[in-house]
Design a protein around this nucleic acid. Structure first.
Length: 295
DNA sequence: CTTTTTCCCTGGACGC
DNA sequence: TGCGTCCAGGGAAAAA
């Protein structure tokens, strides 16, 4: 499942292949990819456009054209992009093909068809992304203070808050678990219950986990692949994700699995604290089931 | 406002 | 071998 490190890897490989190239022919093979618009309509909009930049925001790939228009690609669960120079091979899961003006092709494959391609006019790009995404975790604007601000007052589990793209952009189920392990925070800890030290550790852990993922060109579990067809290797570095029963790298305790926010969640029951309430919040009064005082 | 649940979608794993 | 069932999960939308 492509998260920030995977999308960034895709971006880095596609950038040199796409910048300066013109979209000569565009085929949308699955109408669902561009819904509610018609495939032919979207293809017509894209044909003739010349790429000036390939950027990333959260898990969105941003293809910028000379005209100012933008193609936003989201891979969701199983989407993957490939750049090939030697013609196309059979692939029942191919959902789109772009022929570039140098004769090479960019193909889009997506088994489960959750991915989306959206063409956005220049003035709509900022609002579209800002409405959905919080800070970029690897940019300077992302700080302990910024994260603390986004977690304040939230009673949802910290894991759920990390999966919310408006808290910060780009975390998915894998790197959320990995970051929480690095920060030694239990995934069920209420977000607002983290003290300053906890938020600080988490901020650092998020950056470290994502950078580790980028350094290894992402994690290939099933469907994710780089545009050159190769695999990432981050899956070999997982500390908790998918490792229930295996010993924790820090303390040897078997990794536990539970479910948070409807997602499989792995953690070390010792390193990350066995009870969420145990997340010490010294300054918080021990209010019971205190509801909003009526009138 | 926040939080939770449902839905989309397919293929792989597993039980019988 | 061939079913039926469950699971994987990002994010939009609906429900609570």
């Amino acid at each position: 499942m492509p998260e920030l490190p995977e999308v960034e890897t895709v971006r880095r490989q596609l950038e040199p292949a796409l910048v300066g190239r013109r979209f000569e022919r565009v085929e949308i093979l699955d109408p669902r990819l561009v819904r509610p618009l018609e495939p032919l309509e979207v293809a017509a909009e894209l044909e003739g456009e010349r790429v000036v930049a390939v950027e990333r925001r959260g898990k969105y790939l941003i293809v910028r054209f000379e005209s100012g228009r933008v193609l936003l690609i989201h891979l969701r669960m199983t989407g993957s992009l490939r750049h090939v120079r030697d013609g196309l091979q059979e692939d029942p899961h191919r959902r789109a093909v772009v022929r570039l003006d140098d004769g090479s092709d960019v193909t889009y494959r997506d088994v489960r068809r959750f991915g989306t391609w959206v063409v956005v006019e220049p003035s709509d790009v900022g609002p579209y992304l800002d409405a959905r995404l919080g800070a970029e975790p690897l940019e300077r604007s992302f700080s302990t203070a910024r994260l603390a601000e986004r977690l304040a007052g939230r009673r949802a589990p910290i894991k759920a808050a990390l999966l919310d793209q408006r808290t910060l952009a780009g975390m998915g189920n894998i790197y959320a678990d990995e970051a929480l392990w690095r920060a030694k925070i239990h995934p069920l800890t209420p977000a607002a219950a983290l003290d300053e030290g906890g938020v600080q550790r988490l901020t650092r852990a998020i950056k470290e986990a994502l950078r580790a993922g980028i350094a290894r060109q992402g994690a290939t579990l099933r469907d994710y692949a780089r545009p050159d067809g190769g695999s990432g290797s981050m899956q070999h570095e997982f500390k908790v994700y998918g490792r229930d029963g295996e010993p924790c790298d820090r303390c040897g305790t078997p990794i536990a699995k539970t479910r948070v926010a409807g997602r499989g969640t792995w953690f070390c029951p010792v390193c990350q604290g066995s009870a969420p309430q145990a997340a010490s919040s010294s300054s918080n009064r021990p209010s019971r089931s205190r509801r909003h005082s009526s009138v």
